[in-house]
């Protein structure tokens, strides 16, 4: 239920940001552009994870779901030569299927047990990748995933994806679309039903919202977008293995959303952006980087539990407090 007066205020910055991203290939190096592509993929991942948390169900297997999408894409594209326009949707559907299977036992648990159980089931999937050489390639993973292709050399509609700029724009389109769809879902009746489950699941049951069904549904929707992100990742990096989807990566994802906050739609975007920036700036201190991120995580959890998204309202109420006014809602 968005307020119409605030939406016009929001769209201008959004257009400016998209414009900046379109302009980026003009000014940054090819290496930086690949980092930006990864960043865009991470945006999809973080925003879909934020959706997941709206019912209060934090998971520890979102990264694994991304891996499912990546593995599905890699295997389909490499072993079966499936073109991207079939491989990507198929990968997303497969990820939704896996999400559904995971959600059935998970929906029997809540809170911390849900969190831990999701981790255990995720590790189970990761060990499946490690164990079965066909088709997952064991510890070495799937290598040499073909670049996606649109047309052949000579076709008028041919796009050369060996050029990282083209893949960057390809990813940008998906990111913008995903963000748009996730925004609509967040503001929809279904989105509000999820938030209501977080607020009071008994009340939801009493007014006819089937809580279990909706918790399974959100897991699948979040899984869908994680699958898309994984699919893009597989095409971007060309090779994937079980170590890409270890717990450490999941902790980084959690750091993004903790730093940004999950209450508003914008929190995770702020989080991924600021933390990716810190990550790149800290590149010279490579070995010390986990320590830095560990510190950041702790400082935010202890001193700013709502994340950066609460910063503006806090500053506002601080200054209003200085002039002796009470904040009006």
């Amino acid at each position: 239920m968005s307020k119409s007066n605030s939406s016009s205020f929001i769209w201008l910055p959004v257009v400016i940001v998209i414009g900046l991203f379109c302009f980026a290939p003009q000014v940054v190096s090819a290496y930086r552009l690949e980092l930006l592509t990864i960043f865009l993929i991470n945006v999809i991942l973080a925003q879909s994870y934020r959706l997941m948390t709206t019912t209060g169900d934090w998971t520890l297997c979102h990264y694994i779901l991304m891996g499912v999408g990546a593995y599905a894409t890699g295997i389909l594209a490499k072993k079966f030569g499936v073109p991207f326009y079939a491989a990507m949707p198929l990968a997303a559907v497969i990820t939704v299927g896996v999400s559904l299977i995971l959600a059935l036992p998970l929906s029997r648990t809540i809170g911390f047990a849900f969190f831990i159980a999701s981790f255990a089931l995720g590790e189970f999937i990761r060990h499946v990748w490690l164990k079965f050489h066909t088709p997952f390639g064991g510890a070495r993973g799937v290598n040499g995933i073909p670049k996606l292709e649109i047309g052949q050399q000579g076709d008028w509609y041919f796009i050369d994806f060996w050029d990282s700029t083209n893949f960057y724009f390809f990813t940008l389109i998906f990111t913008v679309l995903a963000l748009l769809v996730l925004y609509r879902i967040d503001r929809s009746r279904v989105g509000n039903a999820w938030k209501s489950i977080y607020a009071d699941s008994e009340l939801c049951e009493s007014i006819g919202i089937n809580v279990t069904r909706y918790r399974v549904l959100i897991f699948c929707v979040a899984g869908f977008f994680a699958g898309i992100a994984g699919s893009l990742l597989a095409y971007q990096v060309g090779s994937i293995d079980p170590h890409n989807f270890e717990m450490v990566e999941m902790v980084y994802l959690i750091i993004w959303v903790v730093v940004g906050g999950v209450k508003t739609y914008w929190g995770p975007l702020i989080g991924v952006f600021s933390m990716s920036l810190v990550f790149e700036l800290a590149r010279p201190l490579q070995e010390w980087r986990p320590l830095l991120f560990g510190l950041i995580l702790i400082l935010f959890l202890v001193f700013m539990p709502g994340g950066l998204e609460t910063l503006l309202p806090r500053i506002k109420s601080f200054f209003l407090g200085l002039v002796g006014k009470k904040e009006v809602r």
């Binding site: 989105g191 549904l217 929707v221």
Partner: peptide
């Protein structure tokens, strides 16, 4: 109408 399509 609580379908996802309507949500989008």
């Amino acid at each position: 109408d609580t379908s996802l399509l309507n949500a989008i």
